[in-house]
């Protein structure tokens, strides 16, 4: 899942640095993620994992780092009874 999320950030995040150089906990906004790009990333993640972020997760914190995104996606997959490892 980590690699898939990194690929999506690379595709939608328009970061000012290479995603490969970022630690899982690194602040994506500091790395250049804009408000608009974070929305595109959110929609890209929804498509890729076939999930829908509920309103409570539609905020900056959910997309602040690779780890935060992983956590949010895992939570939604678990709620849907799907295996996070397989995603």
């Amino acid at each position: 899942m980590n690699a898939k999320i990194r690929a999506l950030i690379s595709e939608f995040g328009r970061l000012s640095v290479d995603v490969a150089t970022l630690k899982n906990e690194a602040d994506l906004y500091t790395a250049g993620l804009t408000s608009f790009a974070s929305v595109q990333l959110m929609l890209g993640i929804e498509d890729a994992f076939d999930i829908e972020f509920p309103e409570r997760m539609l905020n900056r914190r959910s997309f602040a780092s690779i780890a935060a995104i992983e956590q949010a996606v895992s939570e939604l997959l678990a709620e849907a009874g799907r295996d996070a490892e397989a995603a």
Binding site: S35, L43, E55, L58, N59, R60, R61
Partner: peptide
Amino acid sequence: AGKMMANNQRD
């Protein structure tokens, strides 16, 4: 997407 923009703006 706008919901998220709005939340970001408020945050």
